[in-house]
Design a protein around this nucleic acid. Structure first.
Length: 285
DNA sequence: GCGACAG
DNA sequence: ATCTTGTCGC
């Protein structure tokens, strides 16, 4: 794939201030409304996608159906194994991975600067053209509304979605415990969420222009908690926290993830990428 | 200072 | 994320 916005590359050598400034630029460039090159109904799955451990993929993509890729990573000490699995018409059409060094530690809010480069390296190995990417982590559910799903989505100008297992920020509109499969509730921006880059701070004499953000309006929906699966009795499964990455609205994000789930907690693209990352990792240890 | 914090 | 045993349920 070609980088639509190479200037937004998540350089791990930037200072934290520069990283946050870049994220505000990413949020400015992000589109949190539907701009999909396909009909959302066209990605629906009827059953789990066959993993096919032998590595065989359906050949010759003689289809117009949208290609959805799942992105996930596994780690070996100071290296990241980034995996991408592409599905189309309910079948795997390509699987790639890359192994790259990691340069900075995980810092909440700055995940893209640790894992973004490695993920872009994996995208360089991909030969099919994706129509939608599902990332392991947040998109708009982020302090500056620029989580890794948004960051990579904007760089590639690719519709993207963030699927996280835990909530980074924001507040669920309703309690999320013990909900039935299919249930969802909005995640509302809280005081930790900045809405857009804002400046102007004029003082007598000096005019300081800061690159800060203003608090997001209360009630801003930055994503949803979505119960993709639930047990019938005792134990309870936690919901997924899904959010728009780029070129998808919050509500469509819920519909798409719902369509891409096939009986497991994680949507199929993510589940397959998860397994592929683990398989690839095993070859390096 | 305290708490919260994707992977 | 990663390290792991036990356990639930189809």
């Amino acid at each position: 794939m070609t980088l639509d916005r190479p200037e937004f590359r998540p350089d791990p050598d930037l200072s934290h201030e520069e990283m946050e400034a870049l994220q505000r630029d990413i949020a400015d460039a992000a589109e949190f409304e539907d701009d999909l090159p396909f009909d959302p109904e066209a990605v629906a799955l009827n059953s789990p996608v066959e993993a096919d451990a032998s590595g065989n993929e359906r050949l010759g993509a003689s289809s117009d159906a949208p290609v959805v890729v799942g992105v996930d990573q596994a780690f070996l000490e100071e290296r990241a194994v980034s995996a991408i699995v592409a599905i189309q018409d309910g079948a795997v059409v390509e699987r790639v991975h890359s192994v790259t060094p990691l340069s900075i530690p995980y810092i909440p809010g700055l995940l893209a600067f640790r894992e973004g480069g490695p993920i872009l390296a994996a995208f360089e190995e991909l030969s099919v053209e994706p129509d939608l990417a599902i990332f392991d982590g947040s998109g708009r559910i982020h302090f500056r509304q620029a989580g890794i799903a948004t960051h990579i989505g904007v760089m590639l100008d690719l519709p993207s979605i963030g699927v996280a297992k835990r909530l980074l920020c924001g507040e669920p509109a309703e309690p999320v415990a013990d909900r039935p499969a299919g249930w969802s509730t909005p995640i509302l921006a809280d005081a930790s969420v900045v809405d857009r880059r804002e400046t102007t701070e004029k003082r007598a004499g000096s005019e300081t222009t800061r690159e800060q953000g203003v608090e997001a309006p209360e009630g801003t929906v930055i994503g949803h908690a979505y119960q993709s699966r639930q047990w019938d009795r005792e134990q309870s499964i936690n919901p997924l926290y899904i959010s728009p990455g780029h070129r998808v609205s919050a509500s469509t994000t819920v519909d798409l993830v719902d369509s891409l789930c096939a009986g497991y907690k994680l949507p199929e693209p993510t589940r397959l990428a998860d397994r592929h990352a683990d398989d690839a990792k095993a070859q390096y240890e």
